[in-house]
Nucleic acid binder design. Structure first.
Lengths: 201, 201
DNA sequence: GCCTTCGCTTGACACTTGTCAAGAAAACTT
DNA sequence: AAGTTTTCTTGACAAGTGTCAAGCGAAGGC
């Protein structure tokens, strides 16, 4: 049994994180449906049985993993927001970061969209997905409001709208990147340069 | 064996369509990964073995089905485009239709996003998805250019950008509709009223 | 009226899946 | 050093998967 009241909760949690990290590798590569626990364990230092020692079931592992990942993501553009001193500079830095994260972490983003879509079919995923999506919306909204401020304008849409549209852009870019690779990313940056001015006036 | 050179291709194809129709029911309800061939056949007048009589494998059935469905969809807004006589009228009719199709065909749209996402993990899906996505982009572009004309303006983004953004809006609405239901749809219409003017100026 | 082809069902196959119990190994306690 | 608890492995289970071969009734040609 997992230690119910033991002291080294940190040790226990560190293993969970370790498992989550391995799980993310496999999930990102194969997607939610095709990543079996044996495959996940295979890409980890452990055997397949260990998952049920640290997690109740596959769903809990997946949710824990994606939370674990997205916790780091929602601050991705904070430096951009903080350091940019003009609207143009912010747009450039933002566009760069967007392209860069597709380049560096495409599997993770694929997984995110996979899980978000699966949440429409599997109720147990919904709570976590909704929460993370809200955090992402807030992250994007910080960018947009900061842009508006720097441009001496006000946002032309509410936060959910701005997020939905930029997310649509990002998702299309990710999709295209999957088949066409690198060249797509310039297009994404170009799109962002066109769209951001529409979002504040 | 399936009839290789027989005359009644129509009969053969009609069965394929029938199968596709049944498959769409199950796929829309359970999603791509969880819809087994037995389940699909269970929601049809046939037994589970018949699938391999009309289709080579599951992938072919799924692709055929989603093509079958989307073929009818890509004309969804053509009447709106044709009949609207002012920019405002077009926006209203477009927003209405968007909300209506979520109300009426949410499972189909969920399936579409599911498959589009899966195509990032499974190469065999890509060709069909790419093709359909292009058709959807064209469909949306007809709406946007018509709007621009009626508004005496020109589109402020290229077609892929406009599509990506409106698709993002739609997807977010579908997601919210899945958990919150009907009330979400008014929000979608409101968003469309805000966004369309941004897309042409 | 036989015989071939077509349309479909049935039942099996090989394999994968999540889950869990039993117990080995390691770590810690005393 | 012995005992206890934690950690992890192994092997099995039942259920479910896509696929396909064997066969059955009906249709249609001769």
């Amino acid at each position: 049994m997992p230690p119910v009241k033991s002291r080294p909760v940190d040790k226990y949690d560190r293993r969970r994180d370790e498992l989550a990290e391995s799980a993310l590798l496999t999930l990102g590569e194969m997607g939610y449906a095709r990543a079996s626990l044996r495959e996940i364990a295979g890409n980890s230092p452990f055997s397949h049985g260990v998952v049920h020692y640290y997690f109740q079931d596959k769903t809990e592992l997946v949710i824990y993993s994606v939370r674990y990942y997205k916790a780091r993501c929602v601050t991705r553009y904070d430096a951009v927001v903080r350091d940019s001193e003009s609207a143009v500079e912010l747009v450039e830095a933002f566009a760069d970061k967007l392209a860069q994260t597709i380049r560096d972490e495409a599997p993770m983003h694929r997984l995110w969209y996979d899980l978000r879509t699966q949440s429409m079919f599997e109720e147990p995923l919904r709570a976590a997905i909704t929460e993370i999506d809200a955090a992402l919306e807030a992250m994007i909204w910080r960018v947009v409001t900061r842009y508006a401020t720097l441009a001496g304008a006000t946002p032309s849409t509410p936060a959910p709208t701005a997020y939905a549209m930029l997310d649509g852009l990002f998702q299309q870019a990710l999709l295209a990147y999957t088949t066409a690779g690198e060249p797509v990313l310039d297009g994404l940056a170009a799109q962002v340069r066109i769209v951001m001015p529409l979002l504040a006036r």
